[in-house]
């Protein structure tokens, strides 16, 4: 087997390094969306529309940054657009007998389509947008490969900083308590005098803001710019990661890093010359190539989900309102 290992390079160690590097490079959208969805679901409502919010945020962030020349303005615009879409979701869901999952699916399609329509002039923007800056986390290493892989974007750092903040806020503040009580038992919360729809509106709006910021990361921190069909399924996967993370912000971080990093396995294995794994079972020989490697992020997620689940606590941590009868 010919290999592409450079003299003085990291050899097969470059595969785990690539995973770490890739996790730092691409996991932020998963993180932002899953944090946002955690907030929304904690209030007892599901917003499946975050895929659309993510894409609208990506487009709006890129467009505003291109027009204003300020990355910060772009990021803020993405957050505002995300928040507005969250409000729209909450407003529709507050109508009687409206199902939040159906509204979410509608808003997902709406968001993706609207972004495609409005984003047309920004596929090739007249002015190259200002990008969100990078921070070097590898300054301690003399190895250039290590340093290059530990370049992280400021928006990722902010996302990571939000994790303990949200976890603390949910657990220790009055706002967090109200949010959780609405999500656990709406009737009780109503009896206590809280506006169920009001709390859910704020929670869905906050979720939308975060998803919009995740979208800004796609276009203002990751390379490639705005285009049609950007990040298909990223927002949906992030919503699924919330269940995987058991509605805990810290777990959202691990889930996002794991899923983002696992995507590096297929390209990184090819780069060190490993194209196929042969396993001899005696009666037959398995030949696992690229196609199996590309499945790894999904297999890993499924595997951990099965592993951490048991019959008795499979939905442990789910806000109780989500388990009540829905119009499905």
């Amino acid at each position: 087997m010919t290999s592409f290992l450079a003299e003085g390079s990291l050899g097969f160690w470059s595969v785990p390094l690539a995973m770490v590097g890739q996790a730092l490079r691409v996991s932020a959208p998963y993180l932002y969306v899953s944090l946002g969805e955690t907030l929304t679901e904690k209030s007892g409502r599901v917003n499946l529309g975050l895929q659309g919010t993510l894409i609208m945020g990506a487009m709006a962030g890129y467009a505003v940054s291109s027009r204003s020349g300020s990355a910060l303005a772009g990021v803020l615009a993405a957050g505002v657009v995300g928040g507005l879409l969250g409000i729209l979701h909450a407003f529709l869901c507050a109508r009687p007998k409206v199902n939040d999952i159906a509204v979410g699916i509608a808003l997902m399609i709406f968001g993706v389509g609207l972004a495609s329509f409005l984003g047309r002039p920004y596929i090739k923007p007249e002015r190259v947008p200002a990008m969100s800056p990078d921070i070097s986390l590898g300054f301690w290493s003399a190895n250039e490969t290590v340093r290059a892989n530990l370049q992280v974007n400021l928006m990722f750092v902010v996302g990571v900083a939000l994790v303990p903040l949200i976890a603390w806020g949910l657990k220790n503040t009055r706002w967090g308590l109200i949010l959780r009580s609405v999500g656990e038992n709406a009737d009780t919360a109503r009896a206590m005098g809280y506006s169920i729809n009001g709390v859910r509106l704020l929670a869905t709006m906050a979720g939308g803001v975060l998803a919009g910021l995740g979208g800004a990361f796609l276009t203002l921190a990751m390379q490639g710019g705005w285009k049609d069909g950007l990040a298909p399924g990223t927002g949906l996967m992030a919503v699924a990661l919330v269940i995987f993370a058991r509605w805990k912000p810290l777990n959202c971080l691990w889930a996002a890093l794991l899923f983002g990093g696992a995507g590096a396995i297929a390209p990184a294995l090819q780069s060190v010359g490993l194209n196929e794994v042969k396993i001899n079972l005696g009666f037959t020989q398995l030949r696992w190539g690229r196609y199996v490697f590309e499945m790894i992020p999904y297999l890993l997620t499924l595997g951990i989900m099965i592993f951490t689940s048991s019959g008795s606590r499979q939905m442990a941590g789910i806000p109780d309102e989500l388990t009540r009868a829905r119009w499905l």
Binding site: A18, Q22, R25, A148, G263, P267, Q270, V272
Partner: peptide, 13 residues
């Protein structure tokens, strides 16, 4: 995402 990773992996090597 895979394209970004591919270029990074090639540079690493």
């Amino acid at each position: 995402e895979a394209e970004i990773q591919a270029v990074n992996s090639l540079a690493d090597q």
